Simulated assay, not measured.
Amino acid sequence: MSATMTAQPPIVFITGASSGFGAAIARRFAGLGARLVLAARRYERLEALAAELSDSRIAGPAGARAPAIHLIRLDVRDRGAVDKAIAELPPEFSEVTVLVNNAGGALGLSPAHEADLNDWEEMIDTNVKGLLYCTRALLPGMVARDRGHIINIGSVAAETPYPGSNVYGACKAFVAQFSLNLRSDILGSRVRVTDIEPGMAETEFSVVRFKGDQEKAAAVYRGVKPLSAEDIAESVVWCAMLPEHVNVNRLELMPVMQAFAGFAVKRS
């Protein structure tokens, strides 16, 4: 088990923590006794999650103390808000051990020539810029303390193109390469960087992609057992709990009934 997880309770900063992967990751770290900084736009959902985690029956074994939790209403697209939130972290939460850059998502599935440019901009602002803002704000402290872990939630779309994934896939390709470049920049420190790339996973992802169309979202997962938010949370915690000399650069995972398609060929 990593010294990060055993020397003292880690401080885990999770973006997009109000639902899906983020909430599941928070639950999993809470069970290990971590101190949590939970950030999201939907503050009322964060409050509900914090109340759930504060129940010791959920947070850990009998007799375990409820986890220490700090909530932040935060839109990661707002650079000033990110800088302010991190600068104003209470002292007991300020030395962040693990940053999970989870906030992100896809909008639309239209071909590039028909896509909504506003959707493209929002995906870039959240998946790319938001991740950059949070990383840049927290990384210097990790390097100075020679301790920390940046865990980016990417996607198999970074490696495998599919119709309609134009800008979303490009954003996740950025995340993949940025993660590797971070490793090069901080070589010599004990700060770790991991890019986790899930395949088909059932959360609010498709509901958001199809802008609330529940029928379209449900059709994505019909007839197959996709990954769950808990599967991704397990992967995140596994990477964080490895011995501190071990760095998982990239972890790609898909449901067993999902695989790679062949080349597309349009025949006349």
Rank of each mutant, 00 (worst) to 15 (best):
G60C: 11
S189R: 09
A7K: 10
D83R: 14
E114Y: 00
D55G: 02
C134R: 00
R28K: 15
M257E: 14
R250T: 15
V143N: 08
I58F: 03
Y162I: 02
R45Q: 12
L139N: 11
A144V: 08
T203H: 12
A68F: 05
V100D: 11
V100E: 03
A157H: 03
R190E: 14
P161M: 00
P90D: 01
E230W: 06
A218V: 03
R183H: 06
L253E: 09
V98P: 13
A85V: 03
R45C: 07
R65N: 09
V82P: 14
S228F: 10
E95Y: 01
I196G: 06
S206T: 12
L182N: 09
A39H: 11
R192E: 03
M1I: 10
A115G: 12
A170I: 05
P140F: 07
A106W: 04
A26T: 06
E44M: 07
A201V: 14
L36V: 03
G16N: 12
I86R: 07
D116W: 04
V175R: 00
A115D: 14
A240I: 06
V76I: 14
A218R: 15
L242V: 04
P61N: 15
D75M: 01
Q214K: 15
R27F: 12
F210S: 11
G188I: 12
V191K: 01
A34P: 10
P255Q: 04
S94W: 02
V220L: 04
D213Q: 15
R190P: 01
A62N: 00
I58Y: 02
V76K: 10
K216G: 00
T135D: 07
Y162T: 09
V12E: 01
L227C: 10
L251G: 02
T4P: 00
A219I: 02
Y43P: 00
A48Q: 15
A176H: 14
L251H: 13
V248L: 07
M200N: 12
R73K: 11
A26P: 04
V82L: 09
S110Q: 15
R190Q: 14
E202M: 13
E121Y: 04
D185F: 03
V191S: 00
V246E: 06
S56D: 13
Q177G: 05
F210P: 03
C134Y: 05
A217V: 07
I186E: 09
L107Q: 07
P198F: 10
N166T: 14
G141V: 08
L32A: 08
A170S: 13
D83H: 10
V191T: 09
Y43A: 05
R77G: 07
L182R: 05
A233I: 02
A106H: 11
R147S: 15
F205D: 06
Y133R: 12
I196F: 07
E252Q: 07
I69E: 00
R42P: 13
G212E: 03
V191M: 01
I69W: 01
A17R: 06
A170P: 14
G33S: 08
A219L: 03
L107Y: 11
